[in-house]
């Protein structure tokens, strides 16, 4: 397991690698320029003028040499900037080059969570989930970004640079992971109170695992098999939950909040705020504002029996 959360300096895919190569080239070129400039400054500071020379004299013997040195430095600066420009353009071209997308994912930013929809030409094979993006390893994935409310920014530093989500204007981004793993991402454009708690995960699976995951996500939610979970489903459908959340396969079809059809299969709840455990989920349902003030989840009061039934039901939504 990697011992860092997220880092742009340890690229995990070709897009991040090309951004990283550009960054390294710029860094080392700038280091060389910095050392040369400071060296010239030190040389000029330490060099003594010959005794008795007029400091304001024109056309002395050193004048031509100085003019030459300054012109060379200016020329070199222009050349270096042009090299940066060309490198930058070619990196940009490589990042946006048209490819055959193995998977197309639409990511919609909300205050403060990520809606994730996998495109499929067959409508009922489309999968909607939240805050957790699964991708197959070694395959180019096209992410199409849009926003529901304010400007957000999609940033998974291990996989690619940032790309803003602008309401009403679709932008896109390619990502590809070289090896299986869990990569962290974060909203990178201040978007309100809970901007800091708007994280997501990119989970890179082997193609076979990805296919299995996709098949399970494309399914409707499990029907309750025992009386406790059946009661939990009734609680869900008759409480404020149903006003915002959807569970495919039940009458709940609202799209204001995250789709909960396969809630129990996700690692975190509330956009990376809390690990998805029964206790955290209970706290989130009862008093979300204590955890994430300003989020659009209202407080709920449920009797203990109803809460336990609801948690049992949500726990079956693998």
């Amino acid at each position: 397991m990697r011992d860092w959360l997220q880092s742009a300096l340890r690229p995990a895919g070709p897009e991040a690698a090309s951004v990283h190569a550009l960054w390294e080239f710029m860094l080392w070129t700038s280091v060389v320029v910095f050392v040369l400039v400071l060296g010239a400054l030190a040389w000029g500071t330490l060099r003594r003028r010959p005794a008795g020379a007029d400091p304001l004299a024109e056309g002395g013997p050193g004048e031509r040499r100085m003019t030459g040195a300054v012109s060379t430095a200016v020329g070199a600066t222009v050349v270096v900037l042009f090299v940066f420009l060309v490198f930058d353009f070619s990196t940009g071209r490589a990042l946006t080059a048209r490819r055959e997308a193995a998977v197309r994912i639409e990511v919609t930013g909300h205050q403060w969570w990520w809606e994730v929809t996998y495109y499929d030409s067959i409508p009922n094979r489309r999968v909607t989930t939240a805050n957790e993006i699964h991708i197959p390893v070694g395959r180019p994935v096209l992410i199409r970004l849009n926003s529901q409310d304010v400007i957000h920014s999609f940033w998974a530093p291990d996989l690619n640079g940032k790309r803003d989500l602008i309401p009403g204007k679709e932008s896109s981004l390619w990502i590809q992971a070289d090896s299986p793993g869990v990569y962290h991402g974060q909203c990178a454009e201040f978007c309100g109170y809970q901007h800091a708690k708007m994280a997501f995960l990119v989970v890179a699976d082997r193609p076979a695992d990805f296919a299995r995951w996709y098949a399970s996500q494309a399914d409707t939610a499990r029907t309750p098999t025992d009386s406790l979970t059946a009661r939990g489903q009734e609680v869900f459908l008759s409480s404020p939950c149903v006003m915002c959340h959807a569970i495919q396969g039940t009458p709940a079809g609202a799209t204001m909040g995250p789709d909960l059809t396969h809630l129990a299969s996700r690692r975190y709840i509330a956009a990376g705020s809390l690990p998805n455990t029964r206790g955290n989920l209970a706290g989130w349902i009862l008093d979300a504002q204590g955890i994430k003030p300003g989020a659009h989840m209202p407080p709920n009061s449920l009797t203990p029996a109803d809460l336990q039934a609801l948690l049992a039901y949500l726990g079956t939504l693998k």
């Binding site: 009862l286 504002q289 300003g294 009061s301």
Partner: peptide, 11 residues
């Protein structure tokens, strides 16, 4: 004022 933590419905 922006009050986020309203009293729960039962209260």
């Amino acid at each position: 004022t922006r009050r986020f933590r309203e009293s729960p419905p039962a209260a």
